[in-house]
Write a protein that binds this DNA or RNA. Structure first.
Lengths: 331, 331
DNA sequence: TTTTCAACAACAAACGTTTGTGCAATCGTT
DNA sequence: AACGATTGCACAAACGTTTGTTGTTGAAAA
């Protein structure tokens, strides 16, 4: 069954294709009567525009690319909902790619974005991306890029994150304010910007409060760098009365071990940086620094749309976080 | 900076555009020397094909649409990874839409897919979708549809799910095999096919083992239909020694209440249907019927690609589940 | 009546590719 | 040497839209 195109409608109504096109897009040159005739016929013969033809002719694409390093279940869903909430009303469609944390793959994807003539790129960079060099092809092609969540700071590209350092600082402070002195910090891949910043906030808070700490109080947990046995050993040996987690993902990784060793909820206070879902799925509920993945996605998408509409200002937006004090921190 | 197209390359090499096109796609008509000249130039002037032009001319799109009802954090990520693992090597790109559980939105999206001339559709239907009528426009346009996870059975469309009934049956059986008699079943929206099937497996297992049960032993928990207070009241009043959860999402919702009431881990055995991540984030670890979101996504994507390549057979694939016996069920 | 000017619609080109066809040069065969 | 077959490329059309330009009306202004 051949689909009806503009030409078909034109023949049916004895009009020129250009008239159909303009009628459907409410061009002032076309009389109201003709417009309604055309629109009626378009519905009747269920005409659907061929977007490839349209975008080809218009030299754009109606596409926004989303490039993700992986599918982190604790954050990406929220992020995507935030992005989607903006994009859905913008007339753009979302085309999605996964870099699998490979910089090579990321470069390929960027080429692919160019081939698709996407009009904007939202990217959370891979773990192995340490500069923005490969974004310049996009910049040069006039395609705005907005980094979100996992970002590389650059004066040339907009980024949206939370204020990692402040978040970590405030989380740590909450523990200290409740008289915790032996705080274990659990962090992810130390090469990542996000880890560095949160670590900085953690350390700064400790030293601001004149709390001594050694590097032994910090555990880096990423990929399979440290398995649960090693972790368990570590938790057994280290004396601590509180744990700060830089993400809920990390908390969930360690949580079973804490239970197993009977460290939680009795003996250990806990604070995590979280998007606010996980804390309520545990009892007692976890005090956390709430950051909204939804907000990040939404804000990044909005910034991207602004740039796509010609606003050229580069921004580094930091989404605010708030302390949510629940039962996992006690006196 | 204008991007180089085939015509530009043609001028540069004093060749005809058609020759460039064929050279790049290794057409036998072109001599090896010309091919290498062309390819070298293509790289040098970083030629990238304009996919809109190509797909427009070829009357296809290189796009596979993924339509999701919402962003369930316990399942969708796995699902997408599975889909992506297949698609990434297929030359297709993935364009993604969210129906927000609205049938109207779902219809709009399907129209949009037609406009995009997508070559295949993967869809997990919305909660308010009760038939496949709106898929026929795709079928009529020759666009294969594969439903996954949340599906509507239909002789006309392929679907990929787990064998919900068997999974629920086996999960329940595991409790019974460990001498549990008072089993509380926790289920989602009873209007959904998936709920009906899992419920059927649950009930069948109970009656097969001559265990009496009333509807009071079944709790439906969805959206905000039942809030935590009501749930808590219910759990307090109902006597039970085991709980069967039809999904890990539901388990995580109820988990804090179980902890609060001191029902878990001591007094209550637990089994859930799960994709296998959550059970290890709890201690003691949760016995579960493991179903792989990844497998479902992968299988569905493979089925879709087969259909896109002309295999016309409609299938109802059921991904196998396995019992993973951990510590949450005791004697 | 003639001129002017809207209002409306037709015409035609263009977007970058792919692909069916045509054609010259070369090759192999007798 | 003459012929057909093959090789390697050029030519041109086409895909469905949009859009700049041109043309035709009919009515208002002169």
């Amino acid at each position: 069954m051949k689909r009806t195109g503009i030409k078909d409608l034109a023949k049916l109504l004895s009009l020129n294709p250009s008239t159909i096109s303009r009628a459907l897009s409410d061009h002032p040159d076309i009389s109201p009567e003709t417009k309604s005739r055309v629109k009626k016929a378009a519905i009747e013969f269920n005409y659907l525009p061929n977007l490839h033809a349209r975008y080809f002719r218009q030299k754009n694409s109606g596409l926004i690319a989303l490039i993700l390093p992986e599918f982190n279940m604790f954050f990406i869903p929220e992020l995507m909902e935030g992005i989607n909430s903006v994009i859905v009303n913008s007339g753009y469609s979302m085309i999605i790619f996964f870099s699998d944390n490979s910089i090579e793959r990321e470069k390929e994807i960027i080429s692919h974005c160019l081939s698709w003539v996407v009009e904007g790129v939202l990217i959370s960079v891979s773990e192995n991306t340490f500069d923005c060099d490969h974004f310049y092809v996009l910049k040069n092609a006039g395609i705005p890029v907005v980094m979100l969540d996992k970002v590389i700071f650059s004066p040339e590209f907009t980024s949206v994150t939370i204020d990692d350092k402040v978040a970590a600082f405030n989380g740590t402070k909450h523990l200290i304010d409740n008289d915790k002195q032996n705080i274990l910090g659990i962090f992810g891949n130390p090469r990542l910007e996000i880890t560095k910043n949160r670590l900085a906030g953690f350390k700064e808070c400790l030293s601001n409060h004149h709390i001594l700490h050694s590097d032994y109080d910090i555990v880096y947990l990423y990929h399979d760098f440290m398995n649960t046995d090693v972790l368990e050993e570590k938790l057994r040996k280290t004396p601590f009365d509180a744990v700060f987690f830089m993400s809920d993902e990390l908390f969930m990784t360690v949580y079973p071990t804490l239970l197993k060793l009977n460290l939680f909820p009795e003996k250990t206070s806990i604070v995590a940086i979280s998007d606010g879902k996980m804390p309520y799925q545990i009892y007692p509920r976890i005090s956390h620094i709430k950051h909204s993945g939804f907000e990040i996605g939404k804000t990044a998408a909005e910034a991207l749309l602004r740039r796509m509409q010609g606003v050229s200002e580069i921004q580094h937006i930091e989404i605010e976080t708030t302390l949510v004090s629940l039962e996992s921190v006690f006196i």
